[in-house]
Design a binder for these strands. Sequence first.
DNA 1: CTGAAAGCGCTTACAG
DNA 2: CTGAAAGCGCTTACAG
Lengths: 366, 366
Amino acid sequence: MLSSCIDHSPRRLAAAGSNTLGSGKTTSFHIALMAGVSQATVSRALRDSPLVSEATREKVKQIARDLNYHVDRSAAGLRSGQTRTLAVLLFEDDTIGDASVNPYFLSMLGHITRSAARRDYDVLVAFQQLSENWHQHYEISNRADGIILLGYGDFVSFDDKLERLRRDDAHFVVWGASAPGLDGRSVGCENRLGGEIATRHLLSLGRRRIAFFGEMDERCPEFRDRYDGYTDALNAEGIDIDPALQFDARGKESLGVQAVEQLLASGTQFDAIFAASDLIAIGAIAALHEAGLSVPGDVSVVGYDDIHAASCITPALTTIRQDPRAAAGALVDLLLTRIAGGKGDSRQLPPQLIVRKSCGSDKIKS
Amino acid sequence: MLSSCIDHSPRRLAAAGSNTLGSGKTTSFHIALMAGVSQATVSRALRDSPLVSEATREKVKQIARDLNYHVDRSAAGLRSGQTRTLAVLLFEDDTIGDASVNPYFLSMLGHITRSAARRDYDVLVAFQQLSENWHQHYEISNRADGIILLGYGDFVSFDDKLERLRRDDAHFVVWGASAPGLDGRSVGCENRLGGEIATRHLLSLGRRRIAFFGEMDERCPEFRDRYDGYTDALNAEGIDIDPALQFDARGKESLGVQAVEQLLASGTQFDAIFAASDLIAIGAIAALHEAGLSVPGDVSVVGYDDIHAASCITPALTTIRQDPRAAAGALVDLLLTRIAGGKGDSRQLPPQLIVRKSCGSDKIKS
DNA sequence: CTGAAAGCGCTTACAG
DNA sequence: CTGAAAGCGCTTACAG
């Protein structure tokens, strides 16, 4: 029955025939055979091409459903030159001991995936050590139409690598601080404003000796921006910046613990801590508790990111929220714009203060 | 220069020639041309085939590096029938309000990705609502050599869907309780043993009125197993099971909060809580604090999973650890075994008690 | 609106 | 150890 047919291409016919009779996967030729149309029409119908009549489209789709047929993406990808896949590259900071990814990026990954799915794109994930070569980039750039870089940190010292990506005409966007070579490629948060808001909140509560926990390394330009916001707020109140109140800490609890220990050991007076990330803040609170200090009784603490754990700890952490859903959406939008050949604009999302328990809600006399 | 050459296939030559002269991507034909070998040899050399001499392989690889050439995975996939990609499907439990993924699965995703990368496989992620149709499965099964199902819950009521996957000869493995149709496809934790260990720990601390928070729904077979372990431990001590101490709670903080409120409202005496997940435990602790109760002073709490937040909260949560790295490794191993045509065995990983602060370390008189 | 044909860039028998 | 050839399953000009 299948050998009496519409498709007159002998090779195709033989293939379809043997597949149908024996084993082998279902292809668009089988659908064509059953629908009594050409394989090209099947392809068009399945892709909702306006070049196909309503009736034909429906018939083809019904048969495809019945046979549980799905387009072979490798074949489609090869032919069209598009994978309809986006790659997300997460950088692990291996300079701080065990490799680990900030939970904030993990939740962003989820939102990116949903956002991409809505646009009919799949998401490939990869983790990469900050210190590794970027070979994987090129590998992955071969499997996706574009790349989203997360947790990459400093885009200045890695500029040569980005330059190479650009030279290869790779489509990519990054989450983080905007930098010279990143026009139309970055989505971030207004970190300076976020730092200012956090610090102003502490000031409004009467805190005056506010420590800042966050590395002033060029690898963490966002921390630097938050620090600048911190000094903005302090300056606005006419408070001198005390360098003894700044402690380096990368985004990890143990570094927050460490910073508190150093601060305590230094004997410097303080009544609040602005941590450049929630992870640091969480470590700091644990260390404060350990030292017998009350939060927010003795010390107010503000974090940054609003990761899941922030709302779970006691006291619940007041923090600056960077909306991961909005961030993910903006990243995907920008990347798809670039893939489509457009230019797109970099964006800085607004930070939002989330007041919880870790600062105290009443005015406190300094 | 490139037009005087080795490759005598006119079509190929023309293509390679025009690519080299004009724009277009670098292909294995370009490498072949430059290396003075056939395209087939380039393909073999790049795949480290033993059929290629050392010298030829090195020459080819060097040229490929120089030209920043990478194999087109769509073409390779189409030809070989292998994508060298694994899909991870994360189920979101949308029956409990806002869709969200347990952080435990997110961290497992990271480990799966690393594990797969070591075996030279890429990972595709997708999130799916528990209530949605599984269309996406089929879509995704077309883009990967195999699927890992995470957070899926109950494999009994979804048996027809699994049956369909099986019928389509899809390679898949699941994280969770083993079930009849899942021989050689599941990796889980010895949940009953885990429940017993958690409960025995509480008993060893002198606790006698131990509440169990965890849904007894068929969608959560793992919770059921943990409950059985709980009753095992109680029975071994000759303690009667009091149904008034069991409260339904799905894996989410707010449900833990709710369960505590119900427990308190019921007036039932209790001195400990065994929560079937860390998320529930974290919510319970917050609610206990809210009610003015001390943890572990008044109530001891044990969780399950050992998610990141468990070690961050105050008091740090004692919990049953399911090693996500080992779990991910086992899942990937099993799936690759199946993809290779082998059978493989389901595995139950050992649970491990992590003692922290939430239970108190001293004996407590009941 | 539909079909015949070409060809995307590989891998893999087959032959030597 | 190497090469010539076939063909994986699609999409997309091209022609009608």
